[in-house]
Amino acid sequence: MRYVSIERVEPGHYLGKTIYSANGTVMLSAGVQLTVFMINTLNRIGVTMLYIQDAAYADIDISDMVSEETKQAVIREMNETVEALRSGKEWKAGKIGVQINAILEAVMSSEGVMLQLNDIRTAENQWYVHALNVCMISTLIGANMGLNAQQLKELAAGALLHDIGKVGAVPWVESSGTLQEHHTWRGFERLKSKQEFSLLTAHVALQHHEQPDGKGLPRGLSADEINSYAKIVAVANRYDNLVNPAIGALQPQDAVEELMAMSEKELDHKVLIQFTRIISVYPNGTAVRLSTKETGVVVRQHRGLPSRPVIRIVKGSGEEFEVTEIDLALHTTVFIEAVLT
Rank of each mutant, 00 (worst) to 15 (best):
245 P>D: 01
186 R>C: 12
263 S>V: 03
212 P>K: 02
200 L>P: 00
264 E>Y: 09
239 Y>Q: 01
235 V>K: 07
256 V>E: 01
194 K>L: 15
206 L>I: 06
208 H>V: 07
224 D>W: 11
183 H>F: 15
216 G>D: 06
213 D>I: 00
198 S>I: 08
241 N>Y: 11
257 E>S: 13
233 V>N: 04
211 Q>L: 05
265 K>A: 08
235 V>Q: 05
186 R>H: 11
225 E>P: 00
192 K>N: 09
199 L>F: 14
249 A>S: 10
214 G>Y: 06
226 I>A: 00
247 I>K: 10
231 K>P: 01
189 E>S: 06
230 A>V: 05
252 P>E: 01
196 E>V: 10
229 Y>A: 01
196 E>P: 03
218 P>T: 04
252 P>V: 06
213 D>Q: 07
231 K>D: 03
252 P>H: 04
246 A>H: 09
264 E>T: 12
240 D>C: 05
197 F>Y: 12
255 A>F: 09
237 N>F: 08
187 G>P: 08
215 K>Q: 14
208 H>N: 06
256 V>R: 00
183 H>Q: 12
242 L>M: 15
239 Y>E: 01
255 A>I: 03
230 A>P: 04
240 D>W: 04
191 L>R: 10
223 A>V: 06
224 D>V: 07
195 Q>I: 13
253 Q>D: 07
212 P>W: 04
185 W>N: 13
257 E>L: 10
256 V>G: 05
212 P>N: 00
223 A>N: 10
239 Y>G: 00
252 P>C: 05
207 Q>F: 13
208 H>A: 10
201 T>V: 09
192 K>C: 11
249 A>L: 09
265 K>G: 05
260 M>H: 02
183 H>Y: 15
245 P>K: 00
202 A>D: 12
244 N>W: 04
246 A>S: 13
233 V>C: 08
265 K>T: 08
221 L>G: 04
212 P>C: 02
229 Y>W: 10
232 I>D: 03
235 V>S: 07
253 Q>R: 02
238 R>C: 05
215 K>N: 11
252 P>F: 03
230 A>I: 04
263 S>H: 02
226 I>W: 11
220 G>Y: 15
203 H>R: 15
220 G>P: 12
229 Y>D: 06
242 L>E: 11
202 A>C: 13
244 N>F: 08
238 R>T: 14
220 G>F: 14
250 L>R: 13
237 N>R: 01
236 A>P: 06
230 A>Y: 06
186 R>L: 15
186 R>E: 13
266 E>L: 06
226 I>G: 07
212 P>E: 03
187 G>I: 05
200 L>C: 03
235 V>L: 09
186 R>Q: 15
260 M>N: 14
224 D>Q: 13
241 N>H: 13
196 E>L: 12
203 H>Y: 14
190 R>W: 13
252 P>Y: 05
231 K>E: 05
209 H>I: 01
247 I>Y: 14
244 N>T: 06
